Structure formats: C-alpha cells, structure tokens
Simulated assay, not measured.
Amino acid sequence: MRAALYRRPGPANEVLEVLDLETPEPGPEEVRVRITVSGINPTDWKTRAGTNRRRPDGFQIPHHDGAGVVDAVGPGVIGLAVGQRVWTYLAAYHNRWGTAAEYAVLPASRVVPLPDEASDELGACLGVPALTAAHCLGGSFKSLEGRTVLVAGGAGAVGHFAIELATFAGAAVVTTVSSEEKAELARAAGADHVLRYDEPDVAQRIGDLVGGVDRVVEVAPGANMELDLAVLNQGGTISTYAAEPELVLAGGPLMSGNVRLEFVLLYGVSAHELAAAVGWTADALAAGALSALPIAAYPLERVAAAQEHVEQGFVGKVVVRP
C-alpha cells in the first residue's frame, strides 16, 4: 500500500515521506479499513512537529480521522463487516497505522458505521472535532434540551459540530466569530444567534437575546473568560478544549457563580464518556443533523502541504485522498 509516514518529529516537508509498505493485517478485535478520505486535525500536525512527548516507534502513519470501507476483520470483531462504509476516530493513538494511507488497521472500537446518506468527506470531518464537541457539551443530548449554549469560535471544526450537536439536542445556540465569512458558516450550521466577538457590548447583546447561557464551549479561555463569566447562568459550565501556556482565573466570580470549569483533551476521556460522545454523534449523523465543513483536498503525495495548510489556520477541513 501507499502510505505517508514520519520517523522522527519535525517540519512537515522534512520528515513526512510517501512510500510503499506491506499492507498490514488486522489482529484480534481489529479491522482494516480501505481509506477513501483522511481528515487532518491540529493534533495531527502538532504530534508530527513534536509539540508533545509522543515519539514514533520506528515510524508513524499520521491522522486520526478518516472514512472508507471495511476491508478485513480480525478475530473477535462484532458489528462490523467487510464492505461496510465507516468513519474512524483516534486511529493513530498508540497505533502506527493512521489514516494517511490506502489502508489503516485499528481497534474495532474506533470504527463507526457511516450511513449511506453521509458522504465520505463528512465521515472524515467527524472524529476528533465532533467527539470533542459532544464531550464539551456534556456527553449526553438529554441534558441539553431547553438549555442555552454559547459556542466560542463557531466556524472552527469543534465549534461547527458543537452548534449542530447542541441544536440537534434541542438547545438554543449563541456563537461568537471574528469575521462575516465565519458568521456565514456559523449560521449555516444552525446557530440561533451569531455575534462578532470584537464588537462592543457583546455580553449585553447576549443578555438581551437569551438572558444567560448554561454552558460555554470555549476555544480561547484566556481571551474570553470575562465574557463567559458575564453571560453564564448560576451553576453553569465552561468547557474548554484549547491548551494555553498560562491561564489566570478570577477566583471570586468563579466561586460566587458556582461555575464548573472543565478542561477537555480527547485522549484522556474515559471509555464510557467516549462511547457516549460517539453514540450522540452517530445518532445526529443518522438523523441528517451534521454537515461537512468546507473542504480543501490534497492527494496523498502532497500530505506535507496538506498538514501545512492546517498549520496555517484554514477555515474548514483539510483532507487527503489516498
């Protein structure tokens, strides 16, 4: 098979190479997926660049997310069959066979059926961003009905799915964005109210529109904490999925508001919580409630350029087509 891989951390155009490898075989409770679309997330390029402590064991085929067709199943696999369309998540976590290849082998628990109505592009958009969004929203759609959610950065990948999942759950959604282009994307995702965060009196405008919010899905806690606390209802939750080197917190307002502050990294989410996020995402997908982000597609041979496009902050989803 053709595959992209790196043997050491470093810049994309220095360490990523595309070559032929022997096609791997699935082991017990594993499946092999013929990849049609491989989705790239910030965590993929950050891991390749060496911003965390994970290092390749010999080599690493990158990318967690993807869509394709089950090509082979190992012993003990239940609920998946050869020929079935699927989407993947966390494919490259503690596993060298990520989705930036013609075939990926991964645990069957990280492979989810893809409905006939859903495109491969949409399937490759899910994974890390949709599951992060679901977990930041509380992991269960039942807890959101009739609630109000503020999504910071509603045009980003996590923000996009947070809007759609919260709307599917029956919540009212307010989102903040930085440009009119991003505002259009947030409206298309179904946000009830879209505001520019750089305009004056944003907190007052949110208050006038919805009174207050019960949960915040936050991409920039340092920059937005004052706004979040100003609009959050008593006992509300701020759930952030962004890593910041330093975060100074206002202890008084947090305590007086009985605020719950959550930090979310998908790698550390428990199996039970992850399964809940997968179930919510799959239900929304089956109901036609999720949509693909704007796509920038690259061939596998240009995987380095594709990862660099994500590094540069592309608004949408960069994918590779093996």
Rank of each mutant, 00 (worst) to 15 (best):
Ala4Met: 11
Ala4Glu: 08
Arg8Trp: 13
Gly10Ala: 13
Asn13Pro: 10
Leu16Trp: 07
Glu17Met: 06
Val18Glu: 12
Asp20Ile: 14
Pro26Asp: 12
Val37His: 04
Val37Gly: 05
Ser38Val: 04
Pro42Gly: 06
Lys46Arg: 12
Gly50Tyr: 15
Thr51Asn: 07
Gly58Asn: 15
Gly58Trp: 04
Phe59Val: 07
Pro62Ser: 13
His64Arg: 09
His64Lys: 09
Gly68Gln: 05
Val69Asp: 01
Asp71Glu: 11
Asp71Asn: 15
Ala72Ile: 12
Pro75Ser: 14
Ile78Asp: 15
Leu90Gln: 12
Ala91Pro: 07
Ala92Cys: 04
Tyr93Phe: 09
His94Gly: 05
Asn95Val: 04
Gly98Thr: 15
Gly98Tyr: 05
Gly98Ala: 03
Thr99Met: 14
Ala100Ser: 07
Ala101Asn: 07
Val105Glu: 14
Pro107Thr: 03
Val111Ile: 11
Val112Lys: 00
Pro113Ala: 03
Asp116Tyr: 14
Asp116Gln: 08
Glu117Pro: 03
Ala118Met: 02
Ser119Met: 09
Ala124Phe: 09
Ala124Asp: 12
Cys125Thr: 02
Leu131Thr: 00
Ala134Met: 00
Ser143Pro: 06
Thr148Trp: 02
Val149Asp: 05
Val151Asp: 00
Ala155Cys: 10
Phe161Tyr: 14
Leu165Ala: 08
Ala166Glu: 00
Ala171Glu: 07
Ala172Gln: 02
Ala183Leu: 11
Leu185Ser: 01
Leu185Gly: 01
Ala186Phe: 02
Arg187Glu: 00
Asp192Tyr: 06
Pro200Glu: 06
Asp201Cys: 08
Val202Asp: 08
Leu209Gln: 08
Val210Gly: 01
Glu218Phe: 10
Pro221Asn: 03
Pro221Leu: 12
Pro221Glu: 10
Pro221Arg: 02
Asn224Cys: 05
Val231Asn: 12
Asn233His: 04
Asn233Tyr: 04
Thr237Ala: 06
Ile238Cys: 08
Ala243Asp: 10
Ala243Asn: 13
Glu246Tyr: 14
Glu246Asp: 11
Leu249Val: 15
Pro253Cys: 09
Tyr267Asp: 04
Glu273His: 13
Leu274Asp: 05
Leu274Arg: 15
Ala275Trp: 13
Ala276Trp: 02
Val278Pro: 00
Thr281Arg: 00
Ala284Gln: 03
Ala286Cys: 05
Ser291Thr: 08
Leu293Tyr: 04
Ala296Trp: 09
Glu301His: 10
Glu301Leu: 10
Val303Gly: 13
Ala306Thr: 08
Glu308Thr: 01
Val319Phe: 15
Arg321Trp: 01
